[in-house]
Design a protein around this nucleic acid. Structure first.
Lengths: 345, 345
DNA sequence: GTGAAAGCGCTAACAT
DNA sequence: ATGTTAGCGCTTTCAC
């Protein structure tokens, strides 16, 4: 009936319970300091009024924010990142934090993200992008927030990264094809300059070299991790006079487009060529043929990064958390499915 | 050299520029009130110190928050929602807002989201879930934030929804199959109780009825919008004695799993059966065969919802924005591809 | 065990 | 055109 139009504040609760605002505050944040009776009276008033502390005021007072900004590159492979985000979200939520997703997209956005980081709302920062928001020499890290990198390493001092062991995973791709007997390999790369691409590329070249194959056993074509690049890569492959029998794609999405394109051109997978993807997204098991790929521990990458940040926020030092390592590395797993087989003869 | 460890505040800028804090504040929010010379002196100090206003303090003072909470159901079809979110994100960013993604997942999460909404951080609320966070009678709407629903209608008074015309889209699915000559239809539903499922279901039944077909022309099987449900639905279909020639799936993901499962059992699509999906995700054009489906204007749904919220936040009234309608309806588009054809005889 | 009051950084009346 | 100051809602000394 006598409904007040504004949200209840601490003073309303104090009045209703017949105590001071300080007592209400203590009932909420340090209940053990109150007589049981007082505490119960306050809590009853809190419930009756549906009071929730205004955390903006709390933060201004110097309290800790519960908001963590997660920076995601805009053109970011949704089936991959959504699972990483899920891992982050679940882990943060368990510790009482809330995630803000900030997509990068052009310089304006970079500026806005930097301002958000400096705005006083945030407790910490998680980045999944190898390129940090940066505007005229000002980096988002200047906000001084505790920060952790996931899935890509911006290689900035003091920013501990949680990464897939991309080099090892790339070797898994190569060695799988080599073990099947392939000796001539086509590599549809990721976007130039991309962190993961750079490391995997090195891994692939190294694995080819270690197998004693000549450098021209590897034919490369630039891709971009999306369908269109997969199709374009396949057309480049089809145009080759001497087609490699093994194909490594930068990710599953481009692998699926690659396969669709070569099949449409009359080739058969894995009879005419074997294709390996990367990521292990759900669709890779529902395409035709099912895709051999590297499963990334997506949820776990997100969870581990979030955990690291939470520990940092709790005041632990990087040294004790990283145990002397400069990075946390997780392993990919080869999922051998129907898109790879021994070369036909 | 003489680097202060804390972030600069308005007082630091004032001191550096030799003016009062009020002048700094005005230089930032009402520059026209200042003499050009003063303004320039202040701005120089702002730049020199790398000052960004503390928006927590601003908000506490009564200023407007720039944070919008977007509520997303956890089991939320990433390829679909990521585009809706993109539309939201781009539109909000243009108006200077930042999006917070809040996933729903169990009651704990509901409570946390309600607390976030009540915390004073937020400017407004966007929900893509038909079920609003709710805990023991307390709804997130009690926080009193301006709010808009997208893609699903929680059917709460005062919550304007931006929706796909699901009933019309469902008719599109049915009529496409009817026009091809199918007279016996299998419907793999969405999750029971889901808003979109409810409306589409009605549309499908109505379209069948209007075509003069008997009710048993439609065979239903409960699905869940994910791969596993698509596979299970296909197995149920395969077990039927008299198999319908037309199949409508609740979404693309389940349609793709459905097709994969029936093909593995030796059936051919579209020779033995035609399959229609729903959503128009990218993968639907890269599966085998390519999937006939309903394209939802995903980006536009998000953008329209965000726009509506922005206008609400700018003080416009629901009445003037909705032009007398109680909802904003957008239309789906049939994409006829290779998974549908006339029944074989 | 509880209350009074200062102060977090900012904006907007109100002075000058 | 610019300065002074109250106060947003909360937590936390410091008194009692």
């Amino acid at each position: 009936m006598n409904q007040i139009r504004r949200l209840p504040r601490i003073g309303d609760v104090a009045e209703a319970a017949g105590v001071s605002v300080a007592t209400v505050s203590r009932a909420l944040s340090a209940p053990e300091k109150l007589r049981k009776e007082t505490r119960e009276r306050v809590m009853a008033a809190v419930t009756a009024l549906g009071y929730t502390p205004n955390s903006v005021a709390r933060q201004l007072r110097g309290g800790n924010s519960q908001l963590v900004l997660v920076i995601v590159p805009r053109r970011s492979n949704p089936p991959f990142f959504s699972e990483v985000l899920h891992g982050i979200d679940v882990t943060l939520a368990e510790a009482g934090y809330v995630l803000i997703t900030g997509y990068m997209e052009g310089v304006d956005r970079d500026l806005r993200l930097i301002e958000l980081a400096t705005s006083g709302h945030l407790a910490g920062l998680l980045t999944t992008s190898g390129q940090l928001p940066q505007v005229s020499g000002r980096s988002i890290l200047d906000a001084g927030l505790p920060a952790v990198a996931i899935c890509a390493d911006p290689q900035v001092p003091g920013l501990p990264p949680v990464l897939l062991d991309d080099a090892a995973a790339a070797r898994l791709q190569v060695n799988h094809l080599l073990e099947l007997g392939h000796r001539h390999i086509f590599y549809l790369t990721g976007p130039t300059g991309n962190y993961n691409e750079t490391v995997r590329h090195r891994g692939i070249v190294a694995a080819i070299g270690e197998a004693g194959l000549p450098p021209d056993a590897l034919v490369e074509h630039p891709g971009n991790y999306v369908f269109s690049g997969g199709a374009a890569g396949a057309n480049a492959y089809l145009a080759l006079e001497d087609r490699p029998t093994g194909v490594i794609c930068g990710n599953d999405e481009s692998a699926i487009a690659f396969i669709k394109t070569v099949r449409r051109a009359g080739l058969s997978v894995p009879r005419d060529l074997s294709v390996v993807g990367f990521d292990g997204i759900e669709f890779a098991d529902y395409c035709e043929p099912t895709l051999t790929t590297i499963a990334q521990p997506r949820f776990e990458l997100g969870a581990a990064g979030a955990k690291l940040l939470i520990d940092l926020l709790a005041g632990k030092t990087r040294e004790e958390l990283m145990a002397g390592e400069d990075r946390i590395l997780m392993q990919g797993r080869l999922l051998a499915r129907d898109s790879t087989a021994a070369p036909s003869r």
